[in-house]
Design a protein around this nucleic acid. Structure first.
Lengths: 199, 199
DNA sequence: CAGAAAATGTTGTCATGGACTACAAAGTAG
DNA sequence: CTACTTTGTAGTCCATGACAACATTTTCTG
């Protein structure tokens, strides 16, 4: 008969969250390519096929990570803005730094987030991405209201700003420029933005 | 005895190039994840282990693709600049459009290029990336000499410009904004750059 | 509260693919 | 011509994703 002391319940009870947690660690430590459903199952102490009850296939797990990533990014951005002053320049800088920090500290995650393989099911990801995107647009709108920015479609301007940040992160994450240059590059980008889109 | 008509020579003669060619097509059509050495071998008509004579492992093949990608990118940028006028604004716009076109038309390749997994062997890739990067710096320097741009470290300014383009491409390739917006976004970025870094 | 239905896990299996080894054939140099 | 090197082949091992059939819990419903 099985020994009751180290008996595991048949139902894990929280497997989906446990898997996502382990996946995120694995993603950070070893990259998306090395993430294996079987590994995660082992780590969670369940059978090799158990994860399939929560994720239809490997890509579904990656998609879930990406989706959660956008939510975390949104949180990080909002936190940074909440802690920033009132003036537009300092708010923009705060958001810019928050984004690039997040992106460089979660390099593999960012890659997932921006690589939604054109697969049909990526709707959820696109949806999740709208939060941080929208935040940028709002920020731009505020800047225009404060008279710090020229008129113009806030979304379009926000996207370009967003893109610049994402690009800086890409280049650093891709090891094409030294990570130490991050702050300097963000400063340069901020100055150019404030002067280029300002008035 | 084997039929001499469709007999293949024991030595392929050009396997490495053939594999890279097939790999590039596969990359474009099915993405890096779906690239399998065994598939490529089949396509080239050689045994499953043959590719290993030319690429130590799968990643080595991907690295080679990335390296070649930077060379092609450099070529594309130089061609665009060669066909552009003399004035700085038109030259910058030409380079910007050339980059983003290349990046969106070779989405999977770009991803490889900017995802050198921090693996030690990535030195060659970083080296290959220097050509297009240097080109950007040169362009900035020209702009400064023509008096179109403020003074400042050309490399730093070039990197930020490069980053913006890469970011725009990322966002489009990641399906987060509609591809039709490409031109518009590049225009916006160009205007901001010329005004923000100009004088 | 019982029994049915739905969720969730398990075992077993298959096909694919990367990595490795030993061996074979073709090219090259002395 | 012979020895060495390069390039390809055959065979193997192992990990993994995907799937199917079955088991155990939980939850819903009458």
């Amino acid at each position: 008969m099985p020994d009751a002391t180290d008996e595991r319940p048949y139902h894990h009870g929280n497997l989906r969250a446990t898997l996502l947690d382990a996946a995120e660690r694995g993603l950070r430590e070893r990259g998306a390519d090395q993430l294996s459903l079987r590994d995660l199952a082992r780590e969670a102490g369940v059978s090799h096929a158990a994860p399939r009850r929560h994720f239809a296939d490997r890509q579904a797990l990656l998609d879930a990570l990406a989706e959660a990533g956008f939510a975390r990014l949104d949180t990080a951005l909002r936190a940074a803005l909440a802690g920033a002053g009132e003036g537009f320049p300092s708010r923009v800088r705060a958001a810019m730094m928050a984004y690039t920090r997040f992106a460089t500290e979660n390099a593999a995650l960012l890659e997932l987030m921006y690589t939604s393989k054109h697969r049909p099911g990526a709707t959820r990801i696109v949806k999740a991405a709208e939060a941080p995107f929208g935040l940028m647009s709002e920020l731009i709108t505020q800047g225009q209201e404060q008279g710090a920015l020229q008129a113009g479609d806030p979304e379009r301007i926000g996207i370009v700003l967003f893109a610049t940040l994402q690009g800086i992160a890409s280049i650093i994450n891709g090891n094409l420029v030294k990570p130490e240059l991050l702050d300097e590059l963000v400063d340069t980008a901020a100055e150019q933005f404030l002067q280029g889109a300002g008035r």
